[in-house]
């Protein structure tokens, strides 16, 4: 009996001891957290615009921006042909946009709105045309420009944005 007791008890003790050691070694191991930051190249917010819009993309987008409605397919074809017929695309864009500016249906913010809150106007214009916020430098430039050019109107600013290089890219 004694022999039997001697044999059983140490085994139990051993098992318990083994489990405790196992818990200590595995279950209670401290986690080591290493915090890192992914490497990100710092680029300006228009840097990813590297694809030139097709004539059709440009026309659809500019029409929607200026009229707040979609361009009809027949007008799209005709206007696209006009752009193709003039070698300097910038000239073609300027002619088309300035013709649109003569149209009473065009949706431009009133001058009073621009004068009342030029910063908001600039932010909205960047968002409308460039689909992004202006940088501080850009905001500062336009605030100063509006201030120093009292005759400037939303039409002039919209014209400049709609015929700018960034607007031709996405």
């Amino acid at each position: 009996m004694n022999m039997l007791t001697f044999k059983v008890l140490p085994m139990k003790t051993f098992n318990i001891f083994f489990i405790i050691v196992l818990f200590v070694l595995v279950g209670c191991k401290d986690d080591k957290y290493i915090y890192e930051v992914n490497k990100v190249d710092i680029l300006p917010n228009n840097a990813d615009k590297n694809k030139e819009k097709t004539n059709e993309q440009y026309l659809n987008i500019v029409y929607a921006n200026l009229y707040q409605k979609a361009l009809s397919p027949d007008k799209l074809v005709d206007l696209s042909n006009v752009i193709q017929s003039i070698g300097d695309k910038q000239v073609a864009h300027e002619i088309i946009i300035s013709k649109m500016m003569n149209d009473p249906d065009i949706k431009l913010p009133p001058l009073s709105e621009m004068k009342a809150d030029p910063e908001k106007f600039i932010i909205n214009t960047y968002k409308r045309f460039f689909v992004r916020e202006p940088t501080q430098a850009e905001k500062a430039f336009f605030l100063n420009f509006i201030k120093s050019h009292p005759n400037i109107t939303p039409e002039h600013i919209y014209f400049a944005f709609a015929t700018s290089a960034e607007y031709d890219y996405y």
């Binding site: 680029l43 300006p44 228009n46 840097a47 615009k49 430098a137 850009e138 430039f141 336009f142 420009f145 050019h149 005759n151 400037i152 002039h156 600013i157 014209f159 400049a160 944005f161 015929t163 700018s164 290089a165 960034e166 890219y169």
Partner: peptide, 17 residues
């Protein structure tokens, strides 16, 4: 003239990239 100045600013800003 002001339109050209604005275009130039916008284009230079884009060219910088």
């Amino acid at each position: 003239d002001p339109i050209h100045k604005m275009q130039t600013f916008l284009n230079q800003s884009f060219r910088l990239q």
